[in-house]
Amino acid sequence: MYLARFYLPLRDNEGEPFPTLMFRVVEAELSRHFGGVTAHLESPASGLWREKGKTHADEVVIFEVIVEDLDRWWWTSYRERLERDFRQKRILLTLQPVEVL
C-alpha cells in the first residue's frame, strides 16, 4: 500500500483565496476514484520555501489517499492538472509505502 499526500495553497500568487468549491471538487474526485480521501481543510498548515534567495510563505490544505497499487502516471497527470487549476509552478505530491495494521 501507498500513501499519496499533496498540499494545495489556499491563495493564488496574488493573495486571492481560491473558492472553497475547488477544494471540495478535489475531495470528491479522489473519493470517487479511490473510494476514500482525507482532506485537512479546516486547519490550514503553513509552508515556507526559498526560491532565488527569497523566502515565500503559503497556507496550505493537505489531501491524503491510501492506495493499493502505485500508478505513477495517474498521479503525475493529476499533479500537473492541479498545477494548472491552482496556477502553481509546482505542487508537492509525495508517494510513500505504508503498512496498514
Score class of each variant (00 low, 15 high):
F18D: 13
P19D: 15
T20G: 13
T20K: 15
L21K: 15
L21M: 15
L21H: 15
L21S: 15
L21A: 15
M22R: 15
M22K: 15
M22W: 15
F23P: 14
R24P: 10
V25H: 09
V25M: 15
V25P: 00
V25I: 15
V25Q: 15
V25Y: 12
V26H: 13
V26W: 13
V26C: 13
E27I: 05
E27M: 12
A28S: 07
A28I: 01
A28H: 07
E29K: 05
L30K: 04
L30Y: 08
S31N: 14
S31A: 12
R32L: 13
R32V: 05
H33R: 14
H33V: 13
H33D: 12
H33F: 10
F34D: 05
F34G: 02
F34P: 01
F34L: 03
G35W: 09
G35K: 11
T38K: 09
T38S: 14
A39T: 04
H40V: 12
L41R: 07
E42Y: 09
E42T: 13
E42C: 06
S43F: 11
P44W: 10
P44C: 08
P44T: 10
A45E: 11
S46N: 08
W49K: 01
R50I: 09
E51M: 07
E51C: 04
K52I: 03
K52Y: 04
G53W: 07
G53V: 04
G53Q: 06
K54R: 12
K54W: 06
K54L: 11
T55D: 04
T55H: 04
H56F: 14
A57N: 05
A57P: 01
D58R: 03
E59D: 14
V60S: 08
V60W: 10
V61I: 14
I62T: 07
I62H: 02
F63T: 09
F63P: 05
F63S: 08
E64S: 06
E64F: 03
E64V: 08
V65S: 03
V67E: 01
R72I: 08
R72M: 09
W74Q: 00
W74N: 01
W74I: 00
W75M: 01
T76Q: 00
T76S: 00
T76N: 00
